[in-house]
Simulated scan of single mutants.
Amino acid sequence: MDFLFIADPLESFKIHKDSTLAMMRVAQAAGHRLWFCQSRNLLWKDNLVVADCQSLSIKPSSTSWYELAELESRALNSFAAVMMRTDPPFDIEYLNSTWLLSAAQRQGAKVFNNPSAVRDHSEKISITEFPELIPPTLITRELSAVEDFHQKHQDIVIKPLDGMGGMGVFRVGSDGLNLASIVETLGENGARTLMAQRFLPEITQGDKRVLLIGGEYVSFALARIPQGSEIRGNLAAGGKGVAMPLSDQERGIAERLAPVLNARGLFLVGLDLIGGFVTEINVTSPTCFVEITEQTGFDVPQFWLNQLEKALS
């Protein structure tokens, strides 16, 4: 089968741990043909959604690790599967890509994740659908609302809705030091909506990434543990990734959410859990395939491919 990966430039991949590359490797090893383009290479042309794309071969070398063939223009519905793996931010151009991908779906393309589901699913606000599973949370543009929330909970975390990798995450303790300044800066004086959550001290045991694939869950999580005085466990912010089996509580959350989200076309999801609370539901390009596989022996890329082939059958 021909698989098209829409992703960031190949030269930007961190080849020692990139989940998209892990998907590509296992698909190629299984005999599937790989194709690559960036989201900017999607076009509506001659009444079809097409991609100016290139056939891709993954090589064993750690330096020159890929080879691209000549550029071709192919309709998206000519691929067995289209994987949208472009990293956030979810800006207007990302949104434009989802609209083109939705048009491709109407023409018969099979896109993972479903672009309309991605478009309807804010990775942070989506947790409000499951209020019994989340920590005390506030979503607002109003400084006064954040001040009231802080007064009630004393120790809180504030973050922008469109951040990734721990960018723009601030903790404000009981002294309220710099609360107004943080809200005004992050919120651009009320122009941007922010999320505030009660600080969860369990972050010291890790911000756990739980992978849901094809309506099932991976039985190991990657606990991203903050280092030193840092409160962010994100690997991009210097957190240490430690794979561990899901607890009974985490398994229960995964069992509940996996079929619900998969039924909406969210084939691959990354739940973020701290202390048994769901803090984010990531659907754009969830990661941690390689770290879990290397530390536990559970082959996440192969599990992903098995689930994908099942979905395509």
Rank of each mutant, 00 (worst) to 15 (best):
P201W: 11
Q107H: 10
R224F: 07
T287M: 00
E11A: 15
K17W: 07
E11D: 15
K17T: 13
A237W: 06
G228Y: 14
T20P: 03
K208C: 08
F149W: 06
E142P: 09
I139C: 12
L222D: 01
D299G: 10
S102A: 13
A109H: 07
R141L: 09
G176A: 12
S97F: 02
L261G: 00
V157N: 00
V183H: 00
R106F: 11
G275N: 06
A30G: 11
G215K: 08
R171L: 03
M164R: 12
G108R: 10
G187T: 06
T98D: 01
R171G: 06
T140I: 08
V242S: 10
G215R: 06
T86W: 01
G233P: 04
I127G: 04
A243G: 05
I92C: 13
R224A: 05
Q151G: 15
A196W: 00
R171V: 06
D272V: 03
Q151V: 11
E147F: 13
G239W: 02
V269E: 01
D162G: 07
V269A: 04
G215N: 07
S73N: 14
S102I: 05
A145M: 14
G165I: 10
S78R: 07
I134C: 06
L212W: 04
G187K: 00
A80T: 13
F303M: 03
S126R: 10
R106I: 08
G187S: 06
G238P: 04
N234V: 02
A236L: 15
S64N: 14
V278P: 03
Q197Y: 04
D18E: 10
T193E: 11
E230P: 08
V242F: 08
M83T: 06
R25H: 12
A104G: 08
